[in-house]
Design a protein around this nucleic acid. Structure first.
Lengths: 246, 246
DNA sequence: ATCGTGGTCTGATCCAGATCAGAGCGCCGG
DNA sequence: CCGGCGCTCTGATCTGGATCAGACCACGAT
């Protein structure tokens, strides 16, 4: 049996038991060693959905919460709209990252999730995965880990940082996350607009523009519309160190 | 058998099985109905520790993570120190609230926790409670809920808010949390300094002073050193609504 | 009592980044 | 081909809150 692209065979019992290789959970399960019946359970509650087109919503604030999802391809933006109608971007999610965690334990999603480009997802029914986690310590651990990581991530941008520090930290973070998934750490495409970045970094979009051009003038990077190349990753990481706490 | 103050008997088997009534977990367990053997397990991994004196550290950044803890009395401040030696306060924890959650899945605590006054805690060994959670769905759910709540809490102060909005939100939040524990919602003692509040709200301590005195001049509250009385809670909540998202 | 020391308050000044305004420009549809 | 429309960039001005400076005050130690 040949594995389809982007999928990894997890059992060889004649049936087409496949599991998307980018799912964070699959990794956790693999680490525990194969257990056919458990993996079959996990498989059953996984659903590959999409593609969502650019601008299409995956869920909206107030929708009933019933699942978390791992991004398999594309970029997802989560955001809330404040009382004055302004958008507060909570995060960008690249392939391999999990959306919907902040909704756990709430009956409804507390934010909106929208596709920034063509997006495909792995959907995990939450009641089912929670039940399964009770039987698979590794999975429970992985869920705790993901939740805990998000707490740390959320407090990253809460600090008193300058526009330069925020921008550098954002770029370095993207770079590392791309690298972790096997993409280039120095050349990538920004799938969000300047305004999206600004709303995430709590800056004005004009400031984002200015900082990027100044970074370019200083030889730190080269940027042209959505395409960016980090020329001095070390120096950028140095700028970002106070935000990323290292 | 008489229950000691602040404790609730959870079994009546002749042994002194007590469980502190303010622990968030005990509530979760009670909801599931009594199961002697499970509650005995839970009891075994709970340890009442303290009192910690004002200024005493409960854990420090880099300490090996092995337990979370519920505050039984007093106030705990968690913080990190940035590269320039400045303190970033991550949160204040009142009785009934749980510290150490952001350390889950990390080998070490990512922040410091210090007592702001006399503090007593309920300590839960994490490996043990995670194992127990696998057998008690209600407990697992409660842990997920606590983690998820912290994600939301962390993004609260991340937004672009004015000093007035931040201050109002902080006071309203304290008020509600005190009220939830049966204390007065309108008169309470601020157990932290102006500088602590400033470091939490990402303001300068001078700004905290000024905003508080202006709020007092506007008749919203009355404040004298650490003691505060909210005179117009509704108006304060109105000011805070954009931060608290309601 | 005196001193010292944190914590608090208040005024004066400064500045990073917001806001306002408007000009290019890539891209899509007709 | 031309408009039109997002998105992006750049300059000019404004401002909320930081920073600097210092006074006051409660409280504990000597």
């Amino acid at each position: 049996m040949k594995a389809a692209p982007g999928r990894t065979p997890i059992a060889d019992d004649g049936d087409a038991l496949h599991f998307c290789s980018t799912c964070a959970f699959s990794a956790a399960c693999m680490e525990q060693g194969y257990d056919k019946s458990q993996l079959r359970d996990l498989h059953v509650l996984v659903e590959h959905i999409g593609p969502f087109r650019e601008g299409e919503h995956i869920f909206r604030e107030g929708d009933a919460f019933n699942a978390i999802a791992a991004v398999r391809g594309g970029t997802v933006k989560t955001y809330v709209t404040d009382t004055e109608g302004r958008e507060q971007v909570q995060g960008f999610f690249l392939p391999g990252e999990v959306i919907g965690l902040s909704a756990i334990s709430h009956p409804r999603y507390p934010c909106n999730a929208v596709a920034l480009d063509s997006v495909v997802l792995c959907r995990f029914s939450f009641p089912n995965i929670a039940a399964l986690a009770a039987r698979m310590p590794g999975l429970q651990q992985q869920l705790f880990r993901l939740l805990s990581l998000d707490i740390g991530k959320a407090s990253l941008l809460a600090g008193n940082f300058t526009a330069d520090e925020r921008m550098a930290a954002f770029l370095v973070s993207l770079s590392r996350r791309f690298a972790a998934r096997g993409f280039s750490a120095t050349r990538f495409r920004l799938s969000m607009t300047r305004t999206d970045m600004a709303n995430y970094l709590r800056l004005a979009s004009e400031t984002v523009s200015r900082v990027l051009t100044r970074f370019q003038d200083d030889g730190l990077l080269r940027v042209e519309r959505r395409d960016i190349e980090l020329l001095q990753p070390t120096q950028l990481a140095q700028l970002a160190r106070s935000v990323l706490r290292e």
